[in-house]
Amino acid sequence: MLRAGDVGVLLAGAGFVIGLTVVAWGGPRGDTAVIRAAGQIVETTALTHARTLSVKGPLGTTEIEIEPGRARVAVDPSPRQLCVKQGWLTQSGQAALCLPNQVSLEIRGRTAAYDTLGY
């Protein structure tokens, strides 16, 4: 039922779909993490090697974990843990906000996805 060309067409179609998915859903990968406390940038660091940062806020200490290519908020004292639950951030323009503790982690790439974001 399936001829050789059919398999080729199906494979090409699958490749096309995967390519579209990457183009449409995958944003540019970020290479820099910008960490703010109370609106002021406290640290701008490249996503090149693993390290952890501690940032003090009004509620306590927020710990930010950085690994090659990604970063996350590992520990935060805020009650609902929203920024921790966001998990790893990889794409340019992604951000995790720990509002009660006034700490934010933002990923930036070579090309900014947005001019500015208002929270």
Binding site: L2, A4, D6, L10, G13
Partner: peptide
């Protein structure tokens, strides 16, 4: 016009759907 030996209805259907 694709050679029928290698391209059957499945090819035509997938291409038409796209």
């Amino acid at each position: 016009h694709l050679p029928q030996r290698h391209f059957g209805p499945v090819s035509l259907s997938v291409l038409a759907a796209f």
